[in-house]
């Protein structure tokens, strides 16, 4: 097991590579999901606040 983590003496280079990829891809995914949730929540709030617009948009959605 310890030889697995040692990566033939190249542990720093191999694990840093995987770490950097995880950090960047994970960060973008989490940030994007949070933004999508935030945007749709704000949209629902505004739809409730402006009911007359909502009816029109639903009619358009159904078309």
């Amino acid at each position: 097991m310890s030889s697995f983590f040692a990566m033939g003496g190249y542990a720093f280079y191999v694990w840093s590579s995987y770490g950097a990829a995880l950090l960047i891809l994970g960060g973008i995914a989490i940030f994007s999901m949070a933004r999508a949730r935030q945007a749709s929540r704000r949209l629902e709030e505004l739809k409730r606040a402006a009911p007359h617009r909502r009816r029109r948009e639903e009619a358009a959605d159904g078309a």
């Binding site: 891809l25 933004r35 999508a36 945007a39 505004l46």
Partner: peptide
């Protein structure tokens, strides 16, 4: 597939935010 997943989510929020801006303008106008 990661790209597809993240791209679709980001496109969704862009579209939602565009409607949010339109609704905010309409409310302000009202």
């Amino acid at each position: 597939f990661y790209f597809v997943s993240v791209l679709l989510r980001r496109m969704r929020s862009e579209l939602d935010l565009a409607r949010v801006r339109a609704l905010e303008d309409a409310i302000a106008l009202n």
